[in-house]
Every structure is written in C-alpha cells, then in structure tokens.
Design a protein around this nucleic acid. Structure first.
Lengths: 334, 334
DNA sequence: GTATATTCTGAAAAGCTTTTCATTTCAATC
DNA sequence: GATTGAAATGAAAAGCTTTTCAGAATATAC
C-alpha cells in the first residue's frame, strides 16, 4: 500500500555510514561515535524507519516472539493467566502469539508446530492435555513453562497452585462447618486440575472419617449448566446433602441457580463453595465462597520465568497458594 | 538446543533437486514432476523439515500473521470477540499476535507499531480509543477491520451492533413494562459503545415523554463494583426509581448485589437489565434480562473479512443485531 | 526427424538485517 | 615522529526462503 519500505540501507545512505553502523546504533551493541550516532538517529526519524522484525529474527536467531498456548479462549481463569503473561512481557521487547488448543491434544500439537515454524523463542503452555511424552520431547527443543499444569521431574518449570491441597482445604472448611454430606461437581475429565481437586475432596472426607458417596459426585465440564445438572442428579438419587463443592465458580453458579429453582435456600439449606474466584463471584446473591487462585500473578510469573530461561539466567518461581474467600454461600449447619 | 536446523538446502541435497524445486513442492506454486515430488516429500518427512516462517515472510512479503489489538484481556466481551477472531483463522495458515491496548491511546499506538514491525498482513482492532485521525493513517498502511467500534465513512470495515438502537430497545422494554423512573449506569467514559448506549437510553426516554433525571445516571466503568456504587448514589440522591439499565452485565450484577444488600427486591421492587449476555447471566438469581451481543460470531466475521481484504477479494459484512434476552430480573410495575 | 510449443527445473537474485573479520582512525606512549 | 593499542567503522557473509529468468527436457505437430 506504500511505495517501498524504508530499509536500513536508506538510512545508511542518508547518514553516509554503512548499514552495519546503523545496526549498531539501533541495537546499541557497540558504541559508535556520537557524531555519527546523531546523524543516524536523525535519518531514522526523518524517514520514519522501523526495523523489519522478520529480517532481524532470521539473522539473529531470536524472533523476540513467544508462543502462548491456551485452551478455550473466553474461559475466565485461563484468560486471566494469559493476561498476566502478556502483561509480564511489557517493555521486554517480546510479543506473544496466542493460540487455542481447545483441550484437544491433536489440535494442541498442531498449533505448537505453527508456533515453532515461526521461530518462537519460548513457549508457555496453559493447561492442556498433551501427553507427558510429547512434553518431554518439546522441552528439549524450546524453553518451556507450564502454567496450571504439573509434570513429574519438571517442577522448576511449572507454575500452579496445589489443587489437591486447595480442594482439601475447601472441603475441610465445609466439614468444620458441620457438614457431613458434601456433594462434589467435578471439572472436565482429563483436566489435571479437575482430577486434583477431586482427589483433595476425597481425601478430606476420608481424613474426617466421612464416607464418600458416589451418588453425590457429578461429572461436570466447568460450564454453569453442568452445575444445574449436578443438582438434578443429586436430588434424583435421593442421597441428601447439605453442601456442594464445585470445581469451579461457573459450575457453582449453576448449582446455586438449580437450588434456587427448587426453592432450596443457599446457604441455609445447602452451602455452596466454588473455585477460582472469578471477579463476579463477590457480587452474586449470595456472594460465593470460593478458593481464590492468583491467576494474573501466575501468568506474570510465567513470562518472567520464561524470559529468564531464554536469557540463560537462573529463574525462580514464586510459590502460589490458593486462599479461601469465605463469603455468604456457606454457613454452619446443625 | 539442537545442532542445526534442517533447511530447504538439506532437503534439496537429499532429494537431488534444487532448493527452488523443493520450494515449489511445499507451496504447490508450480507443478513438479510426480517422481521428483515424491522424493522431495520423502526427504522432508525423513528429516522432519519445517519451513522457517521468518524467511518465508521476509522474501514473500506475507508474514501470514495478523495483529489483534484488544483491550484489557480478561473482560468477557472482548475475550469472546478475540476467541471468534482466532477461531476464524483456523485452517487459513494465519496466526494471530494478540496485544493489549489497555484502553490507552498511547499504549495502543505503541503496540500497533510493534505489530507493524513484525510485518503483519492485517490488523483487527477491538474497541479502543485511538483517534480517528490515527485510524485514517493506519488504514492506509494496512488492511484493517474494526470490531466493537465505528468510524464515519469506514462502515464497510466495521463490525458492530447498533448500540444506540439496542440500548433504545432495552429502555423501551422497561418503559413498556410500566417503568417511568429508569436509572442508568454508564460504561467507561470515552468508550464508544458506552456513549452510544447512553444515547439510546436517553432517546428512548425522550420519545416516551419521560424526563431524564441526572441524579439517576451514574458514571460507571464496566466493572461490578461500579454497579454497587451506582445504587448508593441513586438512593442517596433520593430520586426514586423502579428500574436500572446497566451498560453491561458486570455492572448489572453489582447493581443487583447492592439492591440485595439493602433488601430491595429484584425484580419486584426494582427491575434490572444488563448488556452483553455473558454466559453467567442466565444462571444468576434472579437470572438477568440482558441485551445479547453475538460476540464470537462478530469475531469470526472479522477474521473472515480481513482475510478477504488481504486476498483482494470483495468482502461483505453480515449485520449483527443485539437481541433482548428477557429473564427474571425485570418485571411489570404498577 | 526437424521445428515448435509446452512443461519442468536450476542458478541466482532478492528480501533486510546482524555479525564477523579486517581495516581504518585516532589517541597515547616512547 | 614512529609505534602501539584501542576504538570505530565498513565490506561482506550469513540467515532461509521465494521468485525470476533462462535453459533443459519433453511433448506435439508437420
């Protein structure tokens, strides 16, 4: 749409120096005499020169691009992690290519390949279901950070809360409030965090000598509708319950909604606890008790760590802890 | 981390053809004799060759990358638009670099420059506050589509619902339900959609001969907390109201919450209507009446259109209409 | 079997930068 | 003023691909 792009050669000519010198001015890689530097900068300003990132990447071997593989853009938790990652890149010169794996391994591997083709300098994986075998291969090829997912023997590169303990704590909280019949709405199958949360729930029951009732466990999918279905299922099967622990907030909203439709009061009749602490939860009626996950901070830590790894610097990962936000949707029971 | 990358020269050598021929096989730009084609493909498979996108982009002038400038990643509406955009790119060979403008013009211009440096082939702007002057400059440089924003004389490249009419309709609905004192919680200042919605609200009142009461208008910021503050403000100023139209769902949730805290029933005492139709709204208690915006579809239309523009093909934009989702948070008033 | 048209193919250039290596410049030293 | 060393600079190569152009191979027509 424009005649021809301004290149480093145009600047070199205009400033009567070699392209190499212009490059040095741009990159501050070597000092150039102040007088020349000034002329070069003027020339660049006048011609509005902007270096071509493709050419730079090709020759330098650093594309200054990171890949971010997220799952199902539009889901609040992961969006916030992505936000943190992108925010953490601010001022670093790096940009992020965001791709969506849709929680399908094939798709994930495919989009990772397009990222690699683009010569990304590093990769952040948010969640996902790629097999450990593939991950092992991948991490040999490119600096890699995992968020919201864990991998044995790779802990130094994984950012996550301890979902097991968080779920344990949430369940324990209900137990301490006097609840004995605690239902659980599971997150999507194969999602690592969903599995961990379920296990934490089960262990908390066990440690308190409470029997786990299969009828009070529902396989959800992290969307609100599955919370609604869960309540139908629980009621149908006839095992009473006084509390529900949902593996995320959206399902907790569905649960709350279904209770309301059946005129079951929350929290007086049934306590509800969620997970993630989406921004909306504090404003629900009743406001939702939930396990907060510091998602944005985790994303920021991910990019910080990745940049360190790329730069060959030692990195250290902060420990992220989930914290229970006690609100109105839970209460003590007789 | 690997010895040396496999290049097209390695393939050429192994297949005993010239690099040009390998290129032709990859791009199917010219037909290559079947026998050679087979050898080349075998060589590529054996060596696991993947073309370097940087080199391709540099020489071909097409980076196969699009820029997506969104605002404030993590806000539901825009995330869904971004999701649509990225989904619409599937199978096209294009990838998206996602950047966050944070609703600050300087920041937006800055990140657009980094996108241009990366030789993006096209750009989608979601919302934003860049001046029309800058937009005019920009659209001369690069194929451009605007989503959630409009620009005089550039309608063929803007994807948006008619926020004015949608707000008009929402307000009219409340009026038809018998409401006369209708408060409004505005979206962030300078946000085009927020302005339009306010205007639609005002016009609907006017057309029905209802006086607009400044005390019943609150300057919000699209976050739930501002819905809470709005109610405080309305009540403090003493002008009664029987309905609230919030410029988005999150503020409507804040409104709902604040009413609850003051034991004002919804919808019996006060009807509440939101905007956007976030997934959660249908599960609230009471479920929220809201104006649905087909955000994902709009995003998909944006990438489809942009790809057409880039390809030099004629494009046409579907018309997107907001649709009122009547739920439980509104009711007829005496 | 030659002339002509067609289809394939390879060599080389181009795309834009960084980086290496050698050279020039300049100040400092004796 | 010649010598040395450091600092600054330029020429050229390198990075990997696509594209142009010309030439080779093959097919077609007579």
């Amino acid at each position: 749409m424009q005649n021809r792009k301004v290149t480093i050669l145009d600047i070199a000519e205009r400033a009567s120096v070699s392209p190499a010198t212009v490059s040095r001015v741009i990159n501050k890689s070597v000092v150039v005499k102040e007088s020349k530097r000034k002329v070069v900068i003027e020339a660049m300003d006048e011609l509005g020169f902007r270096p071509n990132a493709l050419a730079r990447g090709l020759v330098s071997g650093r594309s200054m691009t990171l890949g971010v593989l997220t799952q199902d853009i539009g889901s609040p938790l992961y969006d916030n992690i992505a936000k943190g990652i992108i925010r953490g890149l601010e001022g670093s010169g790096y940009s992020a290519i965001l791709v969506d794996g849709l929680w399908r391994e094939n798709r994930e591997l495919e989009v990772i390949n397009t990222l690699l083709d683009r010569q990304i300098d590093g990769l952040v994986l948010i969640g996902g279901v790629i097999s450990e075998g593939e991950l092992t291969k991948l991490r040999k090829r490119i600096p890699l950070i995992l968020v919201g997912r864990e991998m044995q023997g790779w802990e130094d590169y994984c950012i996550n809360i301890d979902n097991f303990s968080a779920a344990y704590e949430a369940t324990k909280f209900l137990i301490e409030q006097g609840h004995r019949r605690i239902a659980h709405v599971k997150g999507s199958p194969n999602h690592q965090d969903a599995e961990q949360r379920f296990k934490g729930y089960a262990k908390a029951l066990e440690d308190s000598g409470i029997e786990l009732i299969p009828n009070l466990i529902f396989q959800g999918d992290f969307f609100p509708q599955s919370g609604v279905l869960a309540i139908s299922s629980f009621l149908e099967r006839g095992d009473g319950f006084s509390a529900v622990f949902a593996a995320n907030d959206m399902m907790a909203m569905g649960v709350r909604r279904a209770l309301y439709q059946r005129s079951i009061r929350c929290p007086e009749d049934v306590s509800v606890i969620g997970f993630d602490d989406q921004i909306e939860t504090a404003f629900l009626v009743p406001s939702l008790t939930t396990m907060r996950q510091p998602s944005v901070e985790m994303g920021m830590a991910a990019s910080a760590a990745l940049l360190d790894v790329i730069a060959g610097k030692p990195h250290d990962l902060p420990i992220f802890k989930a914290s229970l936000q006690v609100r109105e949707s839970t209460c003590r029971t007789g």
